[in-house]
Amino acid sequence: MLVVVCIKQVPDTTQVQIDPVTNTLVREGIPFIVNPYDTHALEEALRLKDRFGFRVAAISMGPPNAEATLKKALALGVDEAILLSDRAFGGADTLATSRVLSEAIDRLNRQEQVGIVICGKQTIDGDTAQVGPGIATRLGYTQLTLVDRVEKFDPFQGRITVRRKLEGRHETVEAPLPVLLTVVRELNRPRYPTVPMRLESEQATVQVWSNQELQLDQNGIGLKGSPTWVSRIFSPQREKGEIVGDGVADPAGAAHLLVDKLVSRDLLVV
């Protein structure tokens, strides 16, 4: 059985800042990282590999320099790394992205049966959480999002039971394979690469699939296949820190003010 992990190279958003003078994005020297949620997806796939001996393939759609991200996955122990890169894929929104990724998974499935696809809950640059469901729906896999624990996995019966983390509650769900999981940070603690593996991964090759391989209709991918587009960007209004009331002279009054402020701003529901 093949386990497929979808990972994305993202700009390290904690380092993205708005220039206060020009009001534009300061991107100078901002490094690219593996989307943090995807590191948990990768870890879960590698645990399945450790336990059951499955092969793990990591796929990523992105520019040629996203190869670095896949090399990191190779250093952690994935067996195969595939970069989906083509000018025609560029400028894609989530709909067009999931079309390319699901086609690639389907292609892998033709070589070796895919049992589980694992994605991070969302990316930190887009924050959409839409690509996972998009892939699952296209492939017709059962979609189990926001997984924070794999309760049971029976590869012989082909069934998996997971716990999903939702607002204020947890759900335990059982489904037959194939499934697509999107995972949250609480699921696991990603491993650290050993140096021999890092050195091996530096030599390893990342396969690059362009649309030559996938043969998707040009109108369904990239910019052309994306129903949504960004019409404008601007910097958000920054909330300055605010001291509420006079906590020294009137602690109760300050506390009331604070609670009322939270309630009035709908930050707190009573």
Partner: peptide, 19 residues
């Protein structure tokens, strides 16, 4: 909502803007 919307938009083939 995000679980459902992502699936619906894919089947319907339309744009979806998150969050």
């Amino acid at each position: 909502g995000r679980d459902l919307a992502g699936a619906v938009a894919t089947v319907v083939g339309t744009g979806l803007t998150a969050d």
